[in-house]
């Protein structure tokens, strides 16, 4: 399982006043089992890129390959693409519509033709995977759940389609710190259980640094930076020029490097704490 994006280009309102190039010659690859973070400002082209990965938008130029299959040449059935690549939009709780949580989660797999016991089993697994109590919520109305639970129910609706690639567009937006942590833990759990590729958009640099194997930085429709979190966040001047931050711990570590020669390149609190401990042992 892998994703290959080749020379993707997309223009809104082509030939009309207000023409905007949303994506310009974007190419990258994501390997099996990776968690890939995408960062960039609102309007940088991130959302346009995500929508190309499951065929909601057709590129004007370029190709998208998922699992060795080209999904942009028109020969593949769209339902097939959507099964492979699950996309969870921002504020997914606003797409809930069924009477009960179980029915809502079943909507996706039903569209794929899954029926009977297999459907029930799929729904149960998906609900449990997002960390909800199946027995408790299955017959509840999705509108009666709390904000964080609603969001998890909506994500279960996409996971139930058993995608090999799961895309999450700002899954933690607007949540309180506790729900935020729960969503991150949920993403890790899904990744472990399903072993799928996860692509995840966030403005929270700390989350990106601690979760991802690979980071893409999109700026003004172009792929500005690409690499491991260490590779990306070490290019501080470039990020700053784009108006993007580094993880908050990195700022602390930078100060410590300057003042006490800590010599750390940590991006997470855990790594930084280890580096400080080692530093204390060696220098005292």
């Amino acid at each position: 399982m892998s994703i290959e994006v080749k020379n993707l280009r997309y223009v809104y309102n082509q030939g009309m006043p207000g023409e905007t190039v949303a994506l310009d010659d974007v190419s990258f690859g994501i390997c099996d089992g990776q968690i890939c973070g995408v960062i960039g400002h609102t309007g940088s082209g991130k959302s346009t890129l995500l929508q190309h990965l499951n065929g909601l938008l057709k590129p004007m130029d370029g190709e998208v390959w998922v699992d060795g299959q080209c999904i942009t040449d028109g020969s593949i059935r769209l339902v097939e693409v959507r099964r492979k690549v699950g996309l969870v939009f921002q504020y997914p709780e606003y797409q809930l519509f069924e009477e009960t949580v179980a029915k809502d989660v079943a909507f996706g797999p039903k569209n794929l033709g899954i029926e009977g016991d297999e459907l029930d089993e799929t729904v149960r697994k998906a609900i449990e995977l997002v960390g909800l109590d199946y027995e408790k919520v299955k017959d509840a109305s999705p509108f009666e759940l709390s904000g964080g639970m609603k969001r998890r129910a909506a994500i279960a609706g996409v996971i139930a389609m058993k995608p090999s690639v799961l895309i999450l567009d700002e899954p933690t937006a607007g949540l309180d710190p506790k729900s935020h942590r729960e969503i991150l833990a949920m993403i890790r759990r899904i990744h472990e259980e399903l072993g799928c590729i996860i692509i995840f958009v966030s403005h929270n640099m700390g989350d990106i640094a601690s979760m991802c194997d690979k980071v893409l930085v999109i700026n003004k429709g172009k792929l500005a930076l690409e690499g491991t979190p260490h590779e990306v966040y070490s290019q501080e001047e470039k990020l700053e020029a784009m108006g993007l931050d580094v993880p908050p711990v990195r700022e602390i570590v930078d100060r410590l490097n300057e003042e006490i020669n800590l010599g750390s390149d940590a991006l997470t609190v855990e790594d930084a704490a280890e580096d400080i401990k080692t530093w204390l042992e060696t220098s005292h």
């Binding site: 499951n54 909601l56 959507r82 996309l87 939009f89 797409q95 794929l112 996409v158 389609m161």
Partner: peptide, 9 residues
């Protein structure tokens, strides 16, 4: 778009 992503036709 969200429902299309869930396979609505």
């Amino acid at each position: 778009k969200a429902q299309e992503a869930r396979g609505t036709d």
